[in-house]
Design a binder for these strands. Structure first.
Lengths: 339, 339
DNA sequence: CTCTCTGTTGTTCTCGGTAACATTCACCGA
DNA sequence: TCGGTGAATGTTACCGAGAACAACAGAGAG
């Protein structure tokens, strides 16, 4: 703190005070071996005296490493992507990295390619794409990229590094839960099928439904929004054949419950509803929502770990699959009659 | 795209190809006047041919400007802060800046000072603090800072730049709305009073309640969470004196509605409930929630504008106050009896 | 006693831009 | 005709670090 008022000190000023060359200071900063303890002490004292901080921009230029990870978030409104971004930021910071996010909005002027470009030009060491659409992934697959790129998606991919939430297991647990309650006819209200997550949940739903031998019925494709789900439910003219609805996210589940309520149907008496995400409000829906919890924290850690391995040239860990957990609450119950 | 496979081109390679000095290329890149059109054309062709992008890290080192804004977000879970961060990122990007966020978590190892330190060391040109506690602001006030710092808070502040959501007007509109419906006894369920936003809403509530001459009653201090509000409502032993509750955010409003419901009270018949934030789900609560909408997009624009002015040494615009809008929905109605 | 070897430190160059100043040349008025 | 002026461009230094290589001392080996 002896330096108040003057310009930011640089490594050579530290060197002068410590009576060494700037390289010795650099070595101390980077924990090189073969520094005499006494020299190191003098350097550290000089650093202290000047309240010196290394200039990370200069270091980045010299090392060609910024220690920054670019994160592209599609659909940054939703709970999932937001939580993942936060988790990635947290775990990046814990390992000395920082994060530069770009949120792609609906009808954004920015294409995924431009977002990548933007971040690469800024010199990020690696890229992470959260909650992508398949069209984006296809676009990304085509662009030659000079930094490691990780996509958070359900399946492994030869083109990218991947970390995934186990959508399949999560969805399976939903179907199993409903079947165990006695449901034999379930409607799936999916997200837009261009979204990888929506597609993964839809596939897993069909596959599990089939293996239980329950009726195949067309899904309804939503848009992730509660509004859509509300309109759908409100538009029902009579109590449907199916006895349960599996919504691909909690927002739509909430819209469903609201729409069914306004239509005069009661959840779960007339119809069970299950969501996906376990947003903090899920347990305060009326009735509280049965849903699937995802461990975003673990996902953030896995993302950063994998990217660091790629950046630093270490062995890249195998595909990590983050587990999910079904949280059964009041919105699901036995069907009105067991057929 | 002629450059696939080789190393990234730099400004001198472009210069060689264009047959000029690297400074001429630099001038073209930065739109300097006094470049012969023909020269400019040749340079641009060379840039095209090599698919050259300026190295922003090197530029940052030379200019001492990173064109990055550090954003510190307290309580990154909530809808408001998250939306603000996104809005700031969007509007920063639109003007050639990027954003480095740091989310402070509950019981975070990182103090506000350390977060500032972290970002300043990374060389951000400016800092923005979102949704702070008063303790954080006090801490920030004490640290000498070398870059412009903006705090998103209700009141102007001599120490920082400020942009604010008009908490006062928002809260006033809530009280007026309830009074207009006939309510004369309103409970305020506030956020933790260490939070500036909570404090601002609480103050505005009291002030407006007083000016209407309605009964002064102690507030209940919550923690922003639906869980807390649920427990509070569930714990009511009988229908209270007050006829309406103004919750300081939508999450708590939702918890209230849920808790009242479980307690056997009906909203708005027995009690009106109003929130603050207008989260996307608010209109799908049962009943749909009366709440206050805030224009986060405008806030993001104002934040970036003000910070850019500060960074680039232009005149700093006056305190911007972002307007709010009451959205009346089904959770508020006339009280059970007008006393 | 000299020759490695190794631990320790210093010198110089580089990263890829921009700033500051220098140079060249054409054109203009005295 | 000559000096001044300004447009157009070049040369060199610099931002603040790290890499590569050089230098030098003392220890142990032959």
């Amino acid at each position: 703190m002896a330096n108040v008022g003057s310009d930011k000190p640089n490594i050579r000023q530290v060197a002068t005070i410590a009576g060494v060359s700037h390289m010795t200071v650099s070595r101390v900063l980077n924990d090189h071996p073969n520094i005499k303890p006494d020299t190191k002490r003098r350097v550290l004292e000089a650093i202290e005296e000047l309240d010196y901080r290394p200039n990370l921009v200069a270091r980045a230029l010299a090392t060609q490493r910024t220690r920054r990870i670019g994160v592209i978030v599609e659909s940054a409104v939703a709970h999932g992507p937001t939580s993942i971004l936060r988790a990635v930021e947290l775990s990046a910071r814990a390992t000395g990295y920082s994060v530069t996010p770009i949120a792609l909005h609906e009808g954004d002027p920015l294409s995924p390619q431009q977002a990548v470009d933007n971040l690469v030009t800024q010199g990020v060491d690696a890229l992470c794409v959260i909650a992508p659409r398949s069209s984006s992934v296809a676009a990304l697959r085509r662009i030659a990229i000079t930094v490691p790129m990780l996509v958070v998606k359900a399946d492994a991919d030869p083109t990218f590094l991947t970390v995934s939430i186990d959508q399949h297991a999560g969805t399976t647990s939903v179907v199993d839960h409903l079947v165990a309650l006695g449901h034999r006819d379930i409607l799936h209200l999916s997200g837009p099928l261009d979204w990888l997550d929506a597609r993964a949940r839809e596939r897993a739903f069909h596959s599990r439904a089939k293996s239980w031998g329950i009726r195949e019925r067309p899904i309804v494709v939503g848009d992730w929004s509660a509004d859509f789900a509300y309109d759908f439910a409100k538009g029902l003219t009579r109590l449907p054949d199916y006895t349960a609805i599996f919504a691909a996210n909690d927002d739509m589940a909430m819209g469903l419950i609201h729409g069914l309520h306004d239509r005069g149907f009661e959840v779960p008496r007339d119809l069970s509803v299950v969501g996906f995400d376990d947003i903090p409000l899920a347990r305060h829906f009326i009735p509280p929502l049965t849903t699937v919890r995802q461990d975003f924290g673990a996902l953030g850690v896995a993302v950063v770990e994998m990217l660091r391995a790629a950046i630093e040239g270490r062995d890249i860990p195998a595909l990590t699959r983050i587990p999910t957990e079904l949280v059964a609450r009041g919105s699901s119950a036995a069907p009105r009659e067991v057929r």
